[in-house]
Design a protein around this nucleic acid. Structure first.
Lengths: 343, 343
DNA sequence: CTGTTAGCGCATTCAC
DNA sequence: GTGAATGCGCTAACAG
């Protein structure tokens, strides 16, 4: 093997004794030269180990990189192991890969988009980023933007009707006006703590999906003529056993003990079921528990979880399609009520 | 809002009435100008909406982008929802994010690396990519490369002793020489089919982790003076319920019925437990089942799975550190035997 | 501290 | 088909 400093368009053109414009055309514009000539050049390049024009330079010149940034609501570290976000990424990447577009994961906690914005063709933003100043950057970005689970003026978006879905699952869980209800909420407050929400208003999150779900629950609860005291709503900072266990235990040990637990994620609901078992409570006899999301594990657990399947993968597919189509409209994705036997 | 065509270093310098070198220095080399001057310039830039030098141009010039490509063994679509790969990505991204380095996901099925290689500072390659020609590209790449779960000459790598781990878990599962063993293997063959392996040699995969695990199983089986007939090893093409159910059912319905199932992933083992239950078999009384990987769900299921925890997150952390340190050596990560009650 | 210059590797235009 | 020229936006080196 010879030690080769990488070929450039110019150096390879000289080596082949042709114009650099011709090499460029051979790779980029087949119609600008004869089939035969093109194949000769391409073959020679391959033989010499020149794999085509430098993509970074190409992107600088053309203003297009075939890379899209997926802006996650939280750190990549956290999001990548969240089953719901994973399904979303699965959907996104299935479409992108098919179109030879690459995916860059970007943290919603980053200071600003500038670290990557010059490298990518645009952004798919999955949920409102924790660092809200990113939202303004997205609003002002000259690049393509698709938002998911929230909206930015005049941009393409994909949403699910969280309020209505929450209403339906709550409706399913509630039976009589004697039911004692507790809500295990996900990210109702902007804190890393597991705690009760009370009436704490958190205006910055008012339109978050968590609050939409809470509104849905409240509507069903009101219709059932049940009262939801303000000390019966918990905030869980992230969808994981660790935090959910604490809230579930607190809720199940409070008096009067709730017999209905409305959980804002399946992972929370699964933790709650386990906590109930540890406390000697039977699900659904002693306490009915419903989830939200419809992750795979919800089908595998005993009892099977009653939940809302929100089809995250389809959301990802749609978001990627809107992106590639440079669409500007909003899409609504349907959800499904999954009847398990946890309620 | 005024419609602004994006500022460039040059245009902003002219606007501010200073040299473009000064603007560049203000952003990149604080020592080249007074604190005061620097702050003035930075403030003016911010006010005018110039967020700093274009990163794409910067990277072209400097040959550094602060982006690293994570080359996955299979399609991004598949890998992103695999719990083991997810943990690995979690580890990688935790380190990268801390160092302001961004992560690009790249498919092991892609034709070549050239779509991204000019954009990134190097590659972390998680497992041997399905398209093996990528391995040659990695070998010849002038960029940094860290491999995980396999090796490339003279490059940094992170590995787990799969053979020994498999030996230990098998040892745990086997009791007497009367035990009837079956192996539910993951990707022992290069096919998309669930089928028995028999003696089919697949030389290209001979050194894959699946075969290392199989060797470990075999060693324990031999030591226990048990025979493993060639029709008792199954190939499962990917770690999912869908394929695992088929193999588990086939294995559990074969005669003589196995009373020990050695599964090469936890997802396979979990599927096997469920299949056993469906067939009216008790775990571990009628059939002992062990997994591999140590995913979270393995702790949540009933019975708790006995498995090898291979600490994928730590693998990711190490891989990212080796990458950032431009290391050239190989690391071995320890594993842990998790005692559940499925065996 | 400033201004200038020469590339980084390429695509595009234009005359030939 | 060619070759030269221009610029994408920036950095680094150097003289002032």
């Amino acid at each position: 093997m010879t030690t080769k400093k990488p070929w450039t368009l110019k150096s390879i053109a000289k080596e082949l004794g042709v114009s650099n414009a011709t090499v460029s055309n051979a790779f980029n514009r087949p119609d600008q030269l004869s089939e035969k000539r093109r194949n000769e050049i391409l073959a020679s390049c391959k033989k010499l180990g020149y794999s085509g024009p430098n993509k970074a330079a190409q992107s600088l010149r053309r203003g297009k990189s075939d890379i899209v940034a997926l802006v996650l609501p939280d750190s990549v570290e956290y999001m990548v192991s969240d089953p719901v976000a994973s399904k979303f990424m699965k959907g996104v990447s299935s479409i992108l890969e098919r179109n030879q577009v690459n995916l860059l994961l970007f943290s919603g906690q980053a200071d600003n988009l500038s670290a990557v914005s010059d490298f990518v063709d645009g952004f798919i933003c999955y949920g409102s980023p924790r660092n809200t100043s990113l939202i303004d950057e997205l609003k002002n970005s000259p690049k393509k933007v698709v938002t998911v689970d929230f909206d930015i003026d005049r941009n393409a978006s994909v949403n699910v009707d969280n309020e209505q879905a929450a209403y339906e699952i709550a409706k399913k869980a509630l039976r009589t006006s004697d039911d004692k209800v507790a809500v295990l909420g996900l990210r109702l407050l902007d804190t890393k703590l597991t705690c009760r929400v009370y009436d704490t208003p958190d205006y910055s999150l008012q339109c978050s999906i968590a609050h939409k779900r809470l509104n849905g629950y409240r509507r069903a609860i009101a219709e059932a003529q049940i009262c939801l005291p303000s000390d019966r709503v918990w905030n869980i900072p992230e969808s994981s056993e660790k935090f959910a266990n604490i809230a579930a235990k607190e809720a199940l040990q409070s008096a009067p003990r709730p017999n209905v637990l409305l959980c804002m994620s399946d992972l929370i609901a699964i933790s709650a079921i386990q906590e109930a078992n540890r406390l000697g409570l039977k699900v659904p006899e002693d306490v009915r528990i419903v989830g939200f999301d419809g992750i795979d594990e919800a089908r595998r657990i005993t009892p099977r979880l009653t939940t809302i399947h929100q089809n995250s993968e389809e959301k990802g597919v749609k978001a990627a399609q809107l992106f590639l189509d440079s669409a500007k409209h909003a899409e609504l994705i349907p959800y499904t009520l999954i009847e398990g036997n946890s309620c």
